[in-house]
Design a protein around this nucleic acid. Structure first.
Lengths: 219, 219
DNA sequence: TTTAAAAGTAATAGCCCTCTTACTTCAACA
DNA sequence: TGTTGAAGTAAGAGGGCTATTACTTTTAAA
């Protein structure tokens, strides 16, 4: 029983594994690139960033381990594309959620936090992926822009909630997304309320907590 | 440039690396067990649970890769000892912090959250390590007890803050530790306020946020 | 001083991973 | 139909990790 860990990580070379199941359907010839990105979200959502491996992806799509390298220079480039898409989707989701929440800034922030938790629950990619350390060296292209766009939206929402002082707005933002990130992390880790909650339930709890946090800050 | 990732993880076998520096001092013969535990905290604090590897530990202590297995059946057993110690230390730290904060339940909770963030910053082990999924199969011995002890303290603190309804207390607890965990995670990931904050500064921010959260919940 | 257990080491098996190279297949176009 | 470039494959090099086994060094007791 040599290699049979259940968590690993860090740099180096090897180090993953996982389900190893042929989950996705083998994509038609020429569709591999898109399929890789799609399956990346599934894999992230199941195993997190730590469990992301090109080899596992290839296995799931029923292609050879070398195939992905026809479309991406290396693992990080694929991850960067996924992170960029996640940033765009997050920006859209949070903006929509805030929009739908009406005019009250507190409601809007709470809705955004809820949307964040919901998105990460569904797609497995959150701030940790978008701003992953290991992708720093690629942070000059699209990913950089998508990351800034997301951060700008967050700041806007916070400022609308009455925190016009930049430093103050940043601090509140930090609180809210520490909260949001914490909910997703604890949930993923199964540390929330004994049994694993549904993504929806977690999102609602996070949104309620966010509202309380914003209210509490105003006191 | 084969194995040169900078993050990995998941199950399987291989998968780490890291600094590979000879950090700790080679322990005197017979002191390896204690040294391994001590160095584990250092490694966790640098690379997180994902970067934890027995091989790296051995390297840092200047002993052969097989040496650790003289003292621990396998990686998980070592990790469980570390987690157990972390749980005890956390319980002590949080209790002390609450104690020192005086009589106001909100202050006490905020102090506990601050202490949590401070501890994780310093030692690298938090709820994620104590309640790690991969250690579930060992959760019958000391670790289980230490985990319950920690959780009991948290619940007590929450209950003292006026949330006598068990479900309500649990929900508030969840909020607070999602917040705390989120702060440590964002901080570790360098996502907080551009430049990396000191552990102390992060802890204070988390404590302030916790106080706001508790106040907001009371409204 | 002998001796036996404890603590380490060397070597290695077995896995998984990333990424490269050379070869094959396929599909669309001339 | 022949050609050609894109897409994919087979193999393998290079590395890291967890553990195991058999051998060596130390240390402390008899």
């Amino acid at each position: 029983m040599a290699g049979e860990r259940g968590e690993t990580g860090r740099a180096g070379a090897a180090g993953r594994a996982g389900a190893t199941g042929r989950t996705g359907v083998r994509p038609a010839r020429g569709q591999l690139r898109a399929a890789l990105v799609a399956e990346s979200f599934a894999l992230l959502s199941e195993s997190g960033l730590a469990g992301f491996s090109v080899a596992e992806l290839a296995r799931r799509l029923g292609v050879s381990a070398a195939a992905p390298y026809r479309h991406f220079r290396d693992r990080d480039e694929l991850l960067a594309v996924v992170a960029t898409q996640a940033a765009h989707e997050l920006t859209g989701s949070l903006r929509d959620a805030a929009e739908a929440a009406g005019g009250d800034p507190v409601d809007r922030l709470a809705a955004a936090v809820g949307a964040y938790v919901r998105y990460v629950g569904a797609r497995g990619a959150g701030l940790d992926v978008v701003y992953a350390r290991e992708l720093r060296h690629l942070r000059d292209g699209e990913l950089a822009g998508a990351g800034r766009e997301l951060m700008a939206l967050l700041l806007d929402l916070t400022r609308d909630a009455g925190h016009t002082d930049p430093a103050r707005a940043l601090a509140v933002l930090e609180q809210l997304f520490a909260l949001a990130h914490g909910y997703t992390a604890l949930d993923t880790g199964g540390l929330l309320s004994h049994s694993r909650l549904s993504d929806e339930e977690t999102a609602e709890r996070a949104a309620r907590a966010a509202a309380a946090l914003v209210r509490g800050n105003a006191m």
